[in-house]
Design a protein around this nucleic acid. Structure first.
Ligand SMILES: [Mn+2]
Ligand SMILES: [Mn+2]
Ligand SMILES: [Zn+2]
Ligand SMILES: [Zn+2]
Lengths: 145, 145
DNA sequence: ATTATAATTGTAATGATAACAACTTTGTTA
DNA sequence: TAACAAAGTTGTTATCATTACAATTATAAT
C-alpha cells in the first residue's frame, strides 16, 4: 500500500531543506495532505481562500513550484487542459474516469514495465495514466437501462 | 515492434469513416506519418505553412481533433505546457529527455502493469510517460568532464 | 449548373500560467 | 530590542495555447 506522509513529517522535510515555513506554504501543504483528490491550482486556491482571504493565486503557484522542486509533490498531467498535484510521490498509476472526472490511484509494478528498451537511459520520473469509466459510473449506467 | 501505418492506409481509413479528404487534412496526416517525433501544433503548423502559405492554425487544431476522434492519432501530454501528437496509436511508452527534449518510444507490457486494482474499471486509454536523460546526452556529459 | 453541406480562414475571446514590481514578513546581527 | 537584509507575498499585467465565431471558400449532391 501507499504510505501517507503526515503534515508534521512534511514540515520536518521542509525544515531539513532550509525551506521557509511560511503560513501560506504550510496551508497549501496541509491542504494537499488532507485532500488527496489530485486537486488543480484553482481548487487549492479557492478552498484555502475561504480561510485566508488575502491569499494570492501567485503564491499557490510559487508554493507548488517549491514543493515540487523539493520532491514533496508531483505533477499529474493526465489531461492536456488541467494540471493537477499529488502529495503522494511514490510510484503509482492514475486512472481518470471520463464520466465523473474522479482520478483514482492504482498500484503498478514498474519493474515489469521496463522492457529493456531503456537500458542506457537515466530515468528520473515515471507516470502511468489510464482513462475510462469507473465501476460506480458503470453501475449507474446499467441502472438507467 | 511497432507497426507504422502508411499514408495510403490512413487515407483509406478516413474514407471508410466518411471523413472528407481535404487538401489540408491530407497534408497534416502525411506530415504526421513522416515526422514521428511527436510534434506540437506549432511545429506542424510552421512546417506545413512553408508549403501551404494559406494554411490556418485553426485548421491544424480542427484536423487533429478529427483525426483523434477517428482514432488515427493520439495525444501525448508528457509535459504540462505542451500538447504533442502521435500517429502511432498502438500501446507504447514515451520517454522525454530533460536535456535535449527528444521524446523516445519504448515497448511496454501493459498486461504486466495492471495489478488488479482496476479489475472492475472499463479502460479506454493507456499512457506511460518517463522522464530523464537519454544515452546520447549522458555520453556528451561524460566527454565534457 | 445549382444548391446545400462541410471545411477553411482570420480574428477575437478565453483561460492558465509566468513575469514583475511594490509591499510585507521573516531572519540576522548588533 | 532595533535596524537591516533577505525572502515571501500580493495584485497587476503579459504571454501563450487553445477555442469560439462568423465570413468565405471548397466540396458533394441533385
Ligand atoms: Mn495519486
Ligand atoms: Mn510515440
Ligand atoms: Zn466515474
Ligand atoms: Zn537527450
Amino acid at each position: 500500500m501507499l504510505l501517507k506522509p503526515s503534515f508534521e513529517d512534511l514540515k520536518k522535510e521542509l525544515k531539513n531543506r532550509n525551506i521557509n515555513l511560511s503560513y501560506q506554504r504550510l496551508s497549501v501543504l496541509e491542504y494537499l495532505t488532507q485532500n488527496r483528490c489530485h486537486p488543480t491550482v484553482d481548487q487549492i486556491f479557492t478552498d484555502i481562500h475561504k480561510e485566508i482571504p488575502t491569499l494570492s493565486k501567485t503564491t499557490v503557484y510559487n508554493t507548488l513550484r517549491v514543493l515540487i522542486e523539493a520532491g514533496l509533490v508531483r505533477v499529474i498531467t493526465i489531461e492536456d487542459n488541467e494540471t493537477r498535484y499529488d502529495i503522494e510521490v511514490k510510484d503509482h498509476g492514475h486512472f481518470k474516469c471520463e464520466s465523473c472526472g474522479t482520478i483514482y490511484d492504482f498500484c503498478i509494478n514498474m519493474d515489469m514495465l521496463n522492457s529493456g528498451d531503456l537500458n542506457n537511459f537515466k530515468i528520473n520520473d515515471k507516470n502511468v495514466y489510464f482513462k475510462g469509466v469507473c465501476p460506480r459510473c458503470l453501475s449507474n449506467k446499467n441502472e438507467n437501462k
